[in-house]
């Protein structure tokens, strides 16, 4: 069944990310680093441990779903020279996927 709007979403997402990308991100897949256009965010997070907690961060990468490898969890990503592992991948269903990262 044709999905014209899905194709339009994918094209729009790819065009938007090519303009709005804020980092140099490389996803390692099959021993090859694949460059992707992505938006990297690394906001404050609080590790809820003990009575006080520990300051942490929440590195995440947003990118077009078509650029996400199959089975991305566990793959290595390098963003601006810092290595991470993909902890989770959340496809929002509109052509964009958010990768949650952990420091490698």
């Amino acid at each position: 069944m044709p999905k014209p709007f899905a194709l339009l979403e994918a094209r729009t997402a790819a065009a938007a990310f090519s303009r709005l990308s804020n980092c140099a991100a490389f996803i390692e897949n099959d021993n090859e680093d694949v460059r992707v256009d992505a938006i990297f965010a690394n906001g404050y997070a609080a590790g809820q441990v003990g009575a006080l907690g520990m300051a942490s961060s929440q590195p995440a990468l947003a990118l077009p779903t078509v650029q996400v490898p199959a089975n991305p969890v566990g793959l290595r990503v390098t963003v601006d020279g810092q290595a991470y592992l993909i902890a989770d991948a959340r496809n929002d269903g509109t052509g964009e996927t958010h990768l949650l990262l952990e420091l490698a």
């Binding site: 690394n42 590790g47 809820q48 441990v49 520990m54 942490s56 961060s57 990262l101 952990e102 420091l103």
Partner: peptide, 14 residues
């Protein structure tokens, strides 16, 4: 003992 994870893992043993 408790644990959490964000960009890194955190733990506290009280």
């Amino acid at each position: 003992v408790d644990y959490d994870v964000d960009g890194d893992q955190t733990a506290c043993a009280t």
